[in-house]
Every structure is written in C-alpha cells, then in structure tokens.
Design a protein around this nucleic acid. Sequence first.
DNA 1: ATGGTTGAAAGTCAA
Length: 255
Amino acid sequence: MKIASWNVNSLNVRLPHLEQWLATSSPDIVALQETKLEDEKFPDDPLLAMGYRSVFAGQKSYNGVAVLSRERATDVQIGVPGLEDEQKRVLAATVGDLRIVNLYVVNGQSVGSDKYAYKLRWLEAVHDWLAQELVTHPRMIVLGDFNIAPDDRDVHDPAVWNDGHILTSRAERDALERLYALGLHDSYRALNPDATQFSWWDYRMGGFRRNLGLRIDLTLVSEALRPHAVASDIDREPRTWDRPSDHAPAWVELG
DNA sequence: ATGGTTGAAAGTCAA
C-alpha cells in the first residue's frame, strides 16, 4: 500500500506529469496540493480512466487540495471544523481502513509577517483538530506540503535556513513537533535517519540544478501505523521533467 | 541569498 503526496503547482499544467508518474509509480492513494482549479474544472475523467477516483476542494488561482485513490474515498471533510478559512488547504477522507489528512500548510512568507502569524494560528487549529480526530481514527496518515523543514538534515544550508528564516524558524518547527507529540511520526526520517534528500527546490537561481532544496513535503503516520511503515522516500525524477512542479512526490509504503 | 522563476491572470500576487 503506497501513499504519496505531491504539490503539483497547478494541476491544469501538471496533469501530464501526474499521469506519467501515476503510470510508473502506481501509488494507491495520492494527496495533491496547489491544484489551483475550481471543482468544476477538476480532471476527474482522465484520472478515473487511469483507475483513480478523486475527491477535491479547489478554488481559482491559489491553493486547492485533492485525494486520488483506487478505492472509493468516504467521509470527506473539507477544511478544519471551526476554523474560518476561505483558502482550500485541507481535505480529509477515509480510504479503506485509513484516515487520510491532506494538508497544504500556509507558506507564511517571512518571519514576523501577517501571513506568518496566520500560519502559526492555522497550525494550532490543525493540531487541536487532529488531537480529536486521532481518537476516532487511530489509523491516520497526515501528509502534504507542510512548508516546514523539520531540522538541519532537511535543508541544503543550515546557516541560511535558520531560526530567522521562513520554513525553518523555531516557532514553525515547534508547531510541527507538537504534531509529532500527538503520535504522528515523520515516516521518511524514521526510515532514513541519516539521509538528506529534498522535496522542493526554488525555481529561481538554478535551485534544482545546484540541489539547493528543502524537505518540506512530509508523510506522517500515526502511532498505530508506525509499525507498518516499511519504506518512505522522495521521487525526484519528476522534478527533472520539462516544465516541472517545484515539488517532488513524497511517499510512504505500508506493509 | 536584498535576486531570481513559475503560474494564474492580465497588473500583480503568491510561492
């Protein structure tokens, strides 16, 4: 059972890449972020032709999340209950005996900005919600674009990506560690303790060519699933394709 | 990293 996350940065542009990647990687469940598509424009027909059903929550131009699955998804939840947020960043669904929580975490722009404050508030709301959700759904995978690099192993240059920097600031990492404290474990790091591999490279300044990346796309597994997580990796190949997303797919395999 | 690139959209905003 392979479960993946990919920020596609416009599903309209990236559908051919997604199709190619689905054909070769054959995941069972895929969480997509930044689809940037209104729901009526979601390409559910071509995906269904490849054997994937879709549930989605999108908007024009920005944000947008979806879950693709070979098995039908049920109990779809859009957004965090009780959190006022017109931005489509959260989609949860049950697939088989797994609860899938797809997150497109707020970027935050820069430390101290209004968007940074929004990011931290948003993460706190997600934390409180997931604490409740885990009671009823112990077999949970929380995955997506977290827009947080967990520690120095996850950045190309810790001197640059430090406490003063967005995506690596202490408060952001504290928020991520509060999710860990719920029993949500970073499967990639648990299975690859010494590896440095990135999931995002800035389009600018030849970021990918020079491997100036961060690992910000995460697949967290709940305590009940941790013993079943047998492999986790990042597939950087789609980042080499023509007109790529700036993110690569990250995945976890449950045995 | 005080620049630069991409996407959506039609001048900028978000990342």
